[in-house]
Design a protein around this nucleic acid. Structure first.
Length: 870
RNA sequence: GCUCCUGUAGCCCAACUGGAAGAAGGCGGUCGUCUCAAAAACGACAGGUUGUGAGUUCAAAUCUCACCAGGAGUACCA
């Protein structure tokens, strides 16, 4: 038997053994409680780097812990396999997308295998497989029948690089595409949408139940949904039957409205414009529409507007007020028109001042009702206050006036209460090839007709050409496009758009519990049994996108009677990125591979300029991605796992550090040596062999009571069990859990009782506690200790409370909050006894002699603080 | 601009619900043991105003306020 720790050998051996024994298969023993551990499935880009593995290592530790704790655990894996890179590979290199994708999957699956993850591969799914996307199409049809999928013409985000439209969620705050980084353009197109807005209120409200989610993710979703409570009010147009509807959150300011503004795109613009203004208005609209979205909404840009010459009536005051159009009013939000209250809105104030529009104060600060009018307003007063100049509402508090004015408006028929959301419907069609075909046939007689269920899947044709230009390859494929209408038989055409790939990932977690079902998307009984996901692990970048869409899908499918729960992910852990050193020329922006530069003096090999050295997210383009093979080959997967778990708390970014990796390797070596020496030592107290799932194999204990050394070691052992279990069950502090493992190993090394059964208990416990983190070495050592079954099916150790009790404890003595020293006192004494012992101690007496003690503060088992009168 | 997070030794990071100026663990550093030497291993050590300033408290890294620095989200949403 080799006595040196050889990770390459044992890792391969155990991975093979586990596979043969089916150790990673999902248990079907329903007498056990279930635990569904899920990592966000990867896009098969071709290569895994060590950054990805952090995600899987975290989920794997949790899955392995839960298995040892007696749960039946589902930890599946799959591939988010549709998407543009495959298509780009086809355009650039002529490789068919399917071939490219499946080859990448094969390679990445091998890489994942090296990490020793306890994944049930019998449930593997790939979203690009017809077995899977058949059901994506089926779900689309469910949505279509429920009125949740519809077509409309809308101004949409067009990505000029990827040649497709994008959903709002997929455009960042700089107006750039999430994928290509291109500035998106506005286009008016007829597209497919999912009616996610129908669930706006529930998506917002149910965030409250997600107590296992990080607050910031919930906050981001709440902001994205953007609920505003206010009123819809109508302003009749002078000389017309029509009215301008506006949404406002400040109905309490309606008596201060001095003008109304329409968005330039607003259809009423043409009707209200007087002939004198026509030319100027048209010119203005042309200028605005020529601007890009970002130009138009730039922060420091002055608000530009122009009068239409038309007038409206403020029904509350009966006054005639001018109608303007301005670029700061967004057509897409609310009604595309706003009421102007310059006295009480920052933007309106700025706009009114620029354009010499009147300002009417209707709310004043409650403390200076009398004097507020004496000076002209310097800025908008947006705080609550007392209502003035508002007829019957004068003197009312503005917060109360909100409701009163809305009620009054309802009585008079001028408007009503309204809740407005920022969330828009989800644009789901994409003008690309490598995605799920939308199962719709457009018939000249019947309109949009769903493909009958029996004809699913609508397969993606494989013999297509990729030019990379113009319309999607599907649109050019006549023999695929032309089809008879399923309803009336007339010559009709297939929908040639494919679905947003975020649809594929909005339900994959529902498929895993029943991944090989060829008759249903999933058997509701199985999915309802396993769902919701107990622990979901993934990147923060999906805080809105994937996580919001999945919540929407869950609720929509629940309402179709397919699911019996409201939320898909009970607990969410958003892990930080793994960063590595990147070398960049700050002038040219070019990155260099670390091996091409001198690390002590990094210079650009081409120009000789000094390079900037910094940590950045691992990526191919920055030459700083570390392939798992490199780490696994050098130190083994166990070391790699230990490092990413230890180096930083899971939600924080982590900096790759070669020296730190070596530190973990050293630690595993130390554990190895300790266990092997124990096995080889003849005098060691080996426990009886046991096949049972008892917390620990029963130890042979002598009759003699434990020595102090043994008691101290035992306390260290059980403290480690307690701390590590808490770290893994509560807030997921893998970094401190690993530190506890190290502490235990240090305590073992120092303990001078290698022949004691307590030492044996320590060895066994250390290996068991190590198992979720470093599964290979743990199983190898477990077997070397004489066990015949895997460490991973053993019961997780439980700490014994009495083992934690120390005989003596240290009490801190403070005088006026200043520490003066410590005394040793017996443990398990009362607060009063502790105070008495402290008071009588020589240490305290030195300070309190002859002084009056005002009071003594006792923190049990910790300190006694005397407050004295000097 | 608004909202949120972070700020502890050369570096990464601990510190339970406020409770020791002995702050866990790791990396790096220094010194020693071992060795012909080195690596590995083992042992020992290393003066840090807990970003700054104020406040609350018997007691503050921990609570409050202001400021500084870094990061994230969001941005004319009416």
């Amino acid at each position: 038997m080799e006595s040196k720790y050889n990770p390459a050998e044992i890792e391969e051996k155990w991975q093979k053994t586990w596979a043969e024994q089916g150790l990673d298969r999902t248990s079907t023993d329903t007498s056990k409680p279930k635990f569904y551990a899920l990592s966000m499935f990867p896009y098969p880009s071709g290569n895994l780097h060590i950054g990805h593995s952090r995600n899987y290592a975290i989920a794997d530790v949790i899955a392995r812990l839960k298995r040892m704790q007696g749960y039946r655990v589902l930890q599946p894996m799959g591939w988010d396999a549709f998407g543009l890179p495959a298509e780009n590979a086809a355009i650039e290199r002529g490789v068919p997308p399917a071939k490219w994708t499946y080859e990448n999957i094969a390679h990445m699956k091998k890489q994942l295998g090296m990490l020793g993850l306890s994944i049930d591969w019998s449930r593997e799914i790939a979203t690009c497989s017809p077995d899977y996307y058949k059901w994506t199409q089926w779900i689309f049809l469910q949505f279509f029948q429920a009125g949740l999928a519809y077509q409309k013409e809308a101004a949409v985000n067009w990505d000029p690089i990827d040649q497709t439209v994008l959903a709002n969620e997929q455009v960042d705050n700089e107006g750039k595409s999430w994928r290509s980084g291109a500035i998106v353009e506005r286009k008016l197109l007829r597209q497919w949408f999912f009616k996610i807005t129908a669930y706006a209120e529930e998506l917002l409200k149910d965030l409250e139940q997600l107590t296992g989610w990080p607050d910031r993710v919930k906050l981001m979703q709440a902001n994205w949904i953007g609920k505003s409570v206010g009123a819809y009010l109508e302003f009749p147009i002078v000389g017309s039957e029509e009215k301008i509807g506006v949404f406002t959150t400040r109905p309490d300011t309606v008596y201060g409205v001095t003008y109304v503004v329409l968005a330039p795109e607003h259809p009423l613009t043409k009707k209200v414009t007087k002939s004198k203004q026509k030319a100027a208005v048209e010119k203005f609209i042309k200028e605005v529409s020529a601007q890009s979205e970002i130009e138009r909404t730039a922060e420091d840009k002055p608000k530009r507007g122009i009068p239409t010459g038309g007038q409206a009536i403020n029904p509350f005051t009966g006054q005639k007020i001018p109608i303007w159009i301005a670029d700061y009013v967004l057509y897409e939000y609310g009604t595309g028109a706003v009421m102007g209250v310059p006295a009480h809105d920052v933007r309106d104030f700025q706009f009114a001042n620029q354009n010499q529009l009147p300002i009417q104060v209707v709310i004043v600060p409650p403390e200076n009702v009398e004097t507020f009018h004496e000076k002209p307003l310097q800025e908008a007063y947006t705080e609550p206050g007392t209502i003035v100049n508002s007829d019957r509402f004068d003197g009312m508090a503005s917060v109360e006036a909100k409701g009163a004015i809305v009620q009054y408006a309802e009585e008079k028929g001028w408007g009503k209460a309204r809740i407005q959301y920022r969330l828009r419907d989800w644009l789901i069609s994409r003008q690309r090839y490598w995605g799920v075909p939308i199962p719709i046939i457009h018939c000249p007689n019947c309109g949009a007709v769903p493909v009958p269920e029996a004809d699913l899947p609508v397969k993606l044709p494989e013999d297509v050409e990729f030019s990379g230009r113009g319309a999607s390859p599907l649109a050019k494929l006549d023999r695929w496009v032309n089809v008879a209408c399923p309803s009336c038989g007339t010559a009709a055409k297939r929908e040639t758009d494919t679905m947003d790939t975020f649809i594929d990932s909005s339900w994959y977690f529902l498929r895993y519990p029943d991944a090989n079902n060829d008759r249903q998307a999933f058997d509701p009984a199985k999915t309802n049994d396993w769902m919701p996901v107990d622990q979901y692990v993934g990147g923060i970048e999906h805080a809105i996108l994937h996580l919001l869409y999945s919540r929407f899908f869950t609720k929509a499918l629940r309402d179709r009677g397919l699911l019996n729960f409201d939320e898909p992910f009970k607990r969410l852990l958003t892990q930080g990125m793994v960063q590595a050193t990147a070398y960049k020329n700050p002038v040219t922006g070019k990155y260099f591979p670390p091996e091409s530069v001198d690390r002590s003096n990094p210079l650009d090999p081409d120009t000789g300029e000094a390079l900037k050295v910094f940590y950045e997210k691992m990526s191919k383009s920055k030459y700083n991605g570390i392939p798992p093979e490199e780490v696994v080959g050098k130190y083994g997967a166990d070391t790699g796992r230990m490092f990413v778990l230890f180096q930083a708390p899971p939600e924080k970014d982590l900096e790759w550090d070669d020296a730190g990796v070596e530190g973990q390797f050293r630690f595993l070596n130390r554990v190895w040596r300790m266990a092997v020496e124990f096995v080889e030592q003849p005098s060691a107290q080996k426990p009886e062999k046991s096949k049972t799932r008892s917390p620990l194999p029963p130890l042979k204990r002598g009759d003699s009571p434990l020595s102090k050394i043994e008691k101290d070691l035992r306390r260290a052992i059980h403290t480690a069990i307690k701390e590590i279990t808490e770290d893994l069950e509560g807030e997921y502090q893998f970094n401190t859990a690993v530190a506890e493992l190290m502490k235990l190993s240090n305590a073992m090394g120092e303990a001078n009782c290698k022949d004691s059964p307590v030492y044996a208990e320590g060895i066994y416990t250390l290996v068991l506690l190590l198992a979720p983190f470093a599964p290979h070495i743990a199983d190898e050592l477990w077997h070397r200790l004489g066990n015949t079954e895997s460490v991973h099916i053993q019961a997780w150790p439980k700490f014994e409370p009495e083992a934690l009790i120390a005989e003596e404890i240290t009490l801190v003595i403070q005088i006026m909050g200043k520490t003066k020293g410590t005394i040793q006192v017996p443990s398990q004494t009362t607060k009063e006894e502790q105070e008495k012992l402290a008071r009588e101690s020589e240490l305290a007496r030195r300070f309190i002699e002859g002084k009056e003690i005002k009071k003594a503060i006792v923190v049990p088992e910790k300190l006694v603080n005397f407050v004295i009168i000097p």
